[in-house]
Nucleic acid binder design. Sequence first.
DNA 1: CAAGTCGTTGAATCCAAATTCAACAAATTT
DNA 2: AAATTTGTTGAATTTGGATTCAACGACTTG
Lengths: 200, 200
Amino acid sequence: MARAKSTRRTDLLEAAQRAMAEHGAGVRLNQVAEEAGLTSGAILYHYPDLQDLLIDANRAGMERFHDARLQALDGVTDPAQRLVVTITSGLPIDEDDEEVRLLCALGGEAARNTVYAVLLTSLFDRQVAMYQAILESGAAQGDFDLSGDALTISRNLVALEDAYGYRIMAGHPTLDHDACAELILSYARLATNHPLPTEL
Amino acid sequence: MARAKSTRRTDLLEAAQRAMAEHGAGVRLNQVAEEAGLTSGAILYHYPDLQDLLIDANRAGMERFHDARLQALDGVTDPAQRLVVTITSGLPIDEDDEEVRLLCALGGEAARNTVYAVLLTSLFDRQVAMYQAILESGAAQGDFDLSGDALTISRNLVALEDAYGYRIMAGHPTLDHDACAELILSYARLATNHPLPTEL
DNA sequence: CAAGTCGTTGAATCCAAATTCAACAAATTT
DNA sequence: AAATTTGTTGAATTTGGATTCAACGACTTG
């Protein structure tokens, strides 16, 4: 026996996340093992089927991503500020962002793998709900004058951040984090009829 | 010797496209061979390195996708109509769309593969240019009253269709082709200040 | 502390895919 | 129609990853 057991599962999930972020959905058992600093047999002992481990790892990764965004909102009460924070927290900082790299790999796989499709669809919908709450509270407070229903706008906002996430990860020469945030904000301003200042 | 040579290269590219659409970026040589109705040796005779074949196949697939969109515009002169046609032609009809499935696989891979990243970035930019031309001609004719610069709007339009392509391919329960087109149109209407009727 | 359980390794085996290539058949050239 | 080139197969070989498992060290429990 080697490790405190409470971290063992977490270790495996994180190793699998790193391995899949680096090698894609077709990641090998040995690559996961190497990330974990173990042999393939040890991985198999905990997860007889690699697919199960990868699914759990992706679930955990999506959870972490979503939680981090909620976290970023902590203490921010002004709806306009909340909207700006949410937009920037949804984009990768640069093309080395491991968390988003994992999501990209997942997105490519989802077109052929039902489980991944369900996971990603649910993440999408949760992010939509997050925006929707912000938009509706802003509208209720009279800060936002929405151009249409909040669901439509929220879906478009999530779609934009998804797509620009891919562009950033693909290293688009001009579309970096800030440029993409500005693009999404330009839509958000139109849709909310609010200037949405980037600086407080 | 077996086939007329003019179609041989095309056969291989199409087989590789189908194989990669079905099996993802980690597609096996044998899977390509099976799609082509050949043995792996025959594939290797033409493409000693499978990667080269896959790159060519993806280039060809992107070309075809882009050409089909230009084709769809053929004969449509009204800028508003051109915009509507372009928006709907950028979305997969349903989750079985092989062309978009290939693009999704590519997108997931692009975060880890420079060659694919370059290809996809270039496709993105070309699609942006396509929208930009439509928006600017519509603005010049006085049909559109653009909310901002055409480049910004065009990038957002392409980003939206990309992201909704993934959603449709992942089988989102409510976001089908028409729903997504309507979402994108809602942004396009805002951005152009034009009602953009779906029906002529 | 003896017995048992847990987690891990490393070697052995298995399996699937890649690679190589001699042989051959179909087309082309001379 | 003979010779050559082109495209393909199928068998043999190699490679690499998955799987299995006996053995073992490290904890835990009785």
